[in-house]
Design a protein around this nucleic acid. Structure first.
Lengths: 151, 151
DNA sequence: AGGCTGAGGTCGATGGCGTCCACGGACTGT
DNA sequence: ACAGTCCGTGGACGCCATCGACCTCAGCCT
């Protein structure tokens, strides 16, 4: 994990579809060398996935909400997590400090679906209560901050 | 924006580095056809970017926090937004319903940096107060939910 | 009805790319 | 000094990206 690896990570966070040849030009190595480096970064779990970022409204996900969840005292956190994992609408799940153990970012098509989702969450064993905040708009999301000051 | 486009979007949300040839096989079209379709999806803004998803701790971003921001009464929301946009540590920015106008997801290297960031946020014109919740761990993030029931 | 037009597909060709392999130089420990 | 290891380069070969030519079909105008 040297400076070149960090540059590669930065480049791929900016554009995951860069060719190995292009990456090679940017970091000043040969294509096979960056191929091997990127492969190792993937194997080591530094790079977890390559994802296309899509405007959610364009694929029918018109409602974004953030839901804080308070666990029952004595609830098994792992069980709750497993139940959450099975709900595809939960795009992100953070385990938080504070009374509200979880913060969930969810996306659904309509407010009616959000209502059903909240009901479902409140019914899952181990959750005591939820608190939902609706996002009126997403200004930006997952903007990669550069790790290397100037590559 | 037909069923094939949705399949392409789903496939690329799952793996942004799929080749056009592979996409073509999956959707049953020729490579040039999917090339053109994907190009149009990008041009139309449906696909905004391709990003490598990186484990934040591996690149020195050890602290994740969510910060709710209350605006000053009479503050210009656009000015506040512009100030936020200039802060690279703010990875996501949602405009929320409720008293707290903004929710920011931030990532920094250390708690000390988080403290400096919070001070900076409180000093920016237009913000009345902030409320910070620290994420102890990220269970998952930006998991793509399938749009097409079963491609 | 017939033909024009445009959208969106296939096919074929070609140049570049991904990927495998053999080889070579620097660093390290003995 | 020497062998081993790591990490790179360069060459080779097959696949892929991408362009142009052509095909098909639907909609529409005359």
């Amino acid at each position: 994990m040297d400076a070149i690896d960090l540059s590669l990570v930065d480049l791929l966070r900016g554009n995951a579809r860069l060719s190995y040849a292009e990456l090679a030009r940017q970091v000043g190595l040969s294509a096979p060398a960056v191929h091997e480096r990127v492969g190792k970064l993937e194997a080591a779990g530094v790079i977890r996935a390559y994802r296309a970022e899509v405007e959610p409204e364009r694929i029918g996900l018109n409602v974004t909400a953030l839901i804080s969840v308070v666990e029952d005292s004595g609830a098994d956190t792992d069980d709750v997590l497993e139940a959450f994992r099975a709900i595809p609408e939960i795009e992100s799940c953070y385990f938080m400090a504070g009374v509200e153990s979880f913060l969930l970012k969810v996306r659904v098509g309509t407010i009616a679906e959000l209502e059903r989702l909240i009901v479902r969450l409140n019914r899952t064993p181990g959750v005591a209560s939820t608190r939902t905040s609706i996002a009126l708009s997403t200004k930006w999301e997952n903007r990669p901050q550069p790790v290397v000051p100037s590559s």
